[in-house]
């Protein structure tokens, strides 16, 4: 922004310089000279402004009066006798009025929504409110379609497209079968089938969908048992519903413990080590340790 305004200012200053030069009879000038003159004019004006403000503040004010400017001019050693006349000279050129739109236009680029005016309690000198989206929830997307039919339609098309693209891709990258006698297989490519071993695994562990119901299943044998036991104490259980959960947990763990204890299935027992092997084994182990 700063750069922009200063460049605008400079532009106007250089316009002023140019018109003065034209008044003076120059028809053209070097760019460097013009820049130098503009620079000089700018520093002069800044200097005057600066010192005018100093005078103004010196006299305990905040707003600069004409007298302050005059003082500054005088202090800078500039004579003002014929300044008035110079300003009213006949052949002066009038600069075009400043174009403010350029500035506002640039602001508008990022504007979203209508800027709000200051509410009454906010002094107007404070900067204007930012765009409303910065502090108000604004819809930044289109309202989704809630019509059932369209959604289903869309979902269906999407699914089909994905599937088709996927299968086509795989068909193009691998072995294919042809349904036709010719080799032209572009319309209905069939992905070649590859024997798998063991062949039952992929069939019995299907991957077409993922169901999360397995978890409740695993728990079910325990649950069922749980049901049986609480039946006896169901009355108590109902009363202290709060404790129930804890109880259950305890029961569960207990049960799994007891289950593990109770199950005496020969297939779960470890294999026996042959008698003649036992001492030999330990010796072997020892020697192994020793050698290490």
């Amino acid at each position: 922004m700063d750069v922009q305004t200063s460049s605008t200012r400079r532009k106007i200053l250089s316009h002023a310089i140019c018109s003065i030069l034209t008044e003076c009879g120059f028809e053209s000038c070097e760019k460097g000279a013009l820049e130098t003159l503009t620079e000089m004019l700018q520093s002069l004006l800044c200097e005057i402004g600066e010192s005018a403000r100093n005078y103004c503040e010196l006299s305990g004010r905040t707003e600069i009066l004409v007298a302050d400017v005059l003082l500054a001019l005088v202090n800078a050693g500039i004579r003002m006798d014929n300044m008035h006349l110079y300003g009213l000279r006949a052949n002066r050129t009038l600069l075009p009025p400043l174009q403010q739109q350029t500035l506002t236009k640039q602001l508008n680029i990022l504007q979203a929504g209508v800027k709000q005016n200051h509410p009454s309690h906010i002094p107007s000198h404070l900067p204007p409110l930012p765009d409303p989206h910065a502090y108000i929830r604004t819809p930044t997307h289109k309202q989704p379609v809630t019509e059932y039919e369209a959604i289903r339609e869309k979902a269906a098309t999407q699914k089909r497209d994905i599937e088709r693209a996927l299968t086509r891709f795989t068909a193009k990258t691998g072995k294919t079968h042809s349904l036709f006698l010719k080799d032209d297989n572009s319309m209905f490519p069939l992905i070649g089938c590859v024997p798998q071993f063991p062949s039952y695994l992929s069939a019995l562990l299907p991957q077409d969908q993922i169901f999360d119901s397995d978890s409740d299943l695993e728990a079910s044998p325990v649950k069922k048992k749980k049901e049986k036991e609480p039946e006896n104490k169901s009355k108590d259980g109902n009363k202290e519903a709060g404790n129930n959960n804890q109880k259950d947990n305890v029961e569960q763990s207990e049960e799994s413990n007891t289950q593990a204890d109770v199950i005496d299935n020969p297939y779960l027992r470890p294999g026996k080590i042959p008698k003649n092997k036992l001492p030999h084994m330990s010796r072997a182990n020892e020697s192994g340790v020793l050698s290490f």
Partner: peptide
């Protein structure tokens, strides 16, 4: 063909 192909990738 689409279903048959899909079965190669996601067998049911």
């Amino acid at each position: 063909t689409r279903h048959l192909n899909l079965e190669k990738l996601l067998p049911c």
